[in-house]
Design a protein around this nucleic acid. Structure first.
Lengths: 255, 255
DNA sequence: ATTTTTATGATTGATTTTGATTGAAAAGGA
DNA sequence: TCCTTTTCAATCAAAATCAATCATAAAAAT
């Protein structure tokens, strides 16, 4: 693990927990105490954290949390995408919603018709269960599995087993990258979840803003064959990739 | 556990229960009395708590508590029961925790040893995932299923299917009633979940304060045969029932 | 291929924090 | 009231943490 990977990891924990201790940083990065101390000093002088004895404290700043931050980025595009996706839904549909920022936006735009929503995202579940008070239009289901608190979602074998129990009309996925080679995401366990959602649904819809087009990530979810459509935003930087994907036979909606 | 982690833990308990004793703080943090006293002095001079003999009193400030914790405040009986239950747990144990207020208290007293906790309670999951600060001692698993937002828990066929995937050393249950006729609870779906937890664990432990003794509710969970022990509080009103249950062969711990 | 630069890990001594011990003060019971 | 028990604050030795330094390994430049 190198310099910036360590910083990223440590800042992630610091943002989540408020602080990170030297010992904990050594555990998660595998680096020596001396190195961690230098990292702490760097991050502190960059103003990202505040040095305290035994570790560092995350600087409390608005939009500092990773999730909130990413949610703010491209949020106009994400909202447009989410609205377009929500338009697909009809009375009584059963929907898988993958954990992610774009899919979270989808939940903000869900139509007020009876829906069954199955998600592995704790944030989405919490939001929907809360937003759902009045007319009980939505039934919200959570998959089981191990809680990954830093990402706010469930993943792993328990999650896959849980998904086996369900079949949906739609699967809405947010991915790390999409191109002619297929769909990609960053985490092994998350990729497995998404694969299962695709397999267990009639139609899979990928939600991805233009920054994801043509990108790859560590893990491949699968090819484009089982994907019903891609919903993305209509940005100049993405148009080439959109054409390529359309030529490949994928239905692309650019909003 | 270092300086700020101790403070965080202690303030959490102080906010929840109103006070925290020196002894209890020593148990939670593993630090010596001298250190805890210094911590108390610091927190007091920072205005976070008020010093009282034998411990500190939390400064009452509304709205600084998560919803899940507010409901669980101030119940000596439940806390004593929870502490007794927590004492059963050993390094590496796998534990089912049923959703309920008494079982929520159990989670406040979990020992700082590696545990795997499987719960159908969203509140417990949220609390544990958040409280799991320093050493990642606990892996928290959630069952799947339909969200019952008003109770903050998951239930139904999806939950049962999810539970099929797991087997635990312990199941901790909070029930609506317990008597010679067996265990009772109010909701059909919850009862099914509890039945499954009993079936899928080596030992089932019932947590119930004296008000539940001899009571019944709409749904019967099952007989006492599969129950390893009952932990209850030692109130005069409950002693008759305790004797009856003991005569029936049930191990009863009254604290 | 060799040198230079950079990043890392180990070592050192100074500093801070912690844990045990002590005697004094406070609380509780006979 | 007196005595016992518990709690408290102060003190000191031990342990943990820190910043600085040095040596080594990897990466980059020559």
């Amino acid at each position: 693990m190198n310099h910036w990977e360590r910083h990223e990891q440590m800042l992630r924990v610091a943002a989540l927990k408020g602080t990170i201790s030297l010992r904990r940083a050594m555990e998660i990065t595998g680096a020596s105490a001396a190195t961690i101390r230098r990292d702490f000093a760097e991050m502190a002088s960059a103003g990202a954290v505040e040095r305290i004895r035994g570790g560092v404290r995350g600087v409390r700043r608005e939009g500092n949390l990773p999730f909130a931050m990413r949610q703010a980025q491209h949020s106009d595009a994400k909202n447009a995408i989410a609205r377009e996706a929500a338009d697909l839904l009809r009375h009584g549909d059963v929907v898988f919603v993958d954990g992610g920022t774009t899919t979270f936006h989808l939940c903000l735009h869900l139509p007020a018709v009876p829906l069954r929503i199955i998600t592995n995202s704790l944030r989405i579940a919490a939001y929907l269960a809360d937003a759902n008070t009045a007319d009980n239009a939505w039934e919200v289901y959570l998959t089981g599995g191990l809680i990954h608190a830093e990402f706010g979602l469930l993943a792993g074998p328990g999650t896959l087993h849980s998904l086996d129990f369900y079949h949906a009309d739609w699967a809405f996925l947010s991915v790390g990258g999409i191109g002619v080679a297929g769909l990609y995401n960053t985490s092994e366990t998350v990729v497995e979840t998404e694969r299962k959602m695709i397999a267990q649904s009639d139609r899979a819809v990928v939600l991805a803003d233009h920054s994801k087009l043509g990108q790859r990530a560590m893990c491949r979810i699968g090819g484009l064959g089982r994907i019903d459509r891609l919903i993305t935003d209509d940005a100049p930087q993405g148009r080439d990739q959109v054409r390529v994907l359309q030529k490949e036979g994928l239905k692309v909606v650019a909003v």
